[in-house]
């Protein structure tokens, strides 16, 4: 992968909520083509950081650059796909087919007063195929398992052909077997389609296997490096950033 200027650049980001510091001095560059695992304790500010990147929150201090543009003037939100933690807990009774859900990923790209055409339909079918869900295309989303639903939400994020995909704990509530398949899928997207991935997770063990970079966040960045560097961290270094002693038990969650 070519390593030009970063597609996301955070400088001195600070965020406080009700007088409590959530993020302080966060500096972080996301390189094109990387697969970054964002780790950290609960309340460490992972989701807040994601929300800042997505423009849902504005930082008190610091600057954010998205695709070489200051966040304030960034308009090209189609370049960023997002799969949230909440996709898991959407209203299960909502009567929509997989096709309809994935089409929603194109709404903003198509734009107001314009209609869905044949080309768009093909894009939707391709996105569904890319997550191996073609046989469920016209199935009601509520009838699918958690892992399958999460694949559909990935397809919804992929259909607008984003360059960066951000996922906030997408594997919560999915059984081990499917989590594994899910990571394989992400790995393929990263390797063969060149999509940059930023994944928030607690799955430390799995993450070190697939990610190209690991970032640890607890108010500020405590570690940013390669997975093998992360694995060689001493217990003491690890506990300073988690704020309490930790054992990394692979595949135990």
């Amino acid at each position: 992968m070519n390593k030009e200027s970063p597609i996301i650049s955070l400088k001195n980001i600070e965020y406080t909520y009700e007088k409590k510091t959530v993020l302080k001095n966060v500096n972080f560059d996301l390189t094109k083509g990387s697969f970054v695992g964002l780790l950290g304790p609960n309340g460490g500010g992972k989701t807040t950081l994601i929300k800042i990147i997505l423009g849902m929150l504005s930082p008190m201090k610091g600057s954010l650059t998205l695709f070489n543009k200051p966040a304030e003037s960034f308009k090209d939100w189609n370049k960023i796909g997002f799969v949230s933690q909440k996709s898991n807990s959407f209203n299960k009774g909502f009567p929509a087919t997989v096709f309809e859900v994935v089409s929603a990923g194109l709404t903003s790209k198509i734009g107001y007063f314009k209609f869905f055409n044949k080309k768009d339909k093909q894009k939707v079918l391709d996105a569904i195929k890319s997550v191996n869900m073609s046989e469920y295309t016209y199935e009601n989303i509520g009838n699918l398992s958690g892992g399958q639903q999460q694949r559909v939400f990935i397809a919804r994020a992929l259909v607008s052909e984003p360059e960066l995909l951000i996922l906030d704990e997408p594997t919560v509530g999915i059984d081990y077997e499917n989590v594994h398949r899910f990571y394989e899928l992400l790995h393929e997207l990263n390797k063969y389609k060149g999509i940059t991935l930023l994944l928030v997770t607690h799955d430390t063990g799995t993450m070190t296997k697939y990610a190209t970079d690991i970032v640890c966040l607890n108010k500020t960045l405590h570690f940013h490096g390669k997975p093998d560097e992360f694995e060689s961290l001493t217990e003491k270094e690890m506990s300073t950033f988690y704020g309490h002693p930790v054992n990394i038990v692979t595949h135990d969650h």
């Binding site: 997505l54 939100w77 189609n78 996709s87 903003s108 607008s160």
Partner: peptide, 10 residues
Amino acid sequence: FDEEHAKVSG
């Protein structure tokens, strides 16, 4: 279907 997704996608 998903208000958050709609907002994030612009």
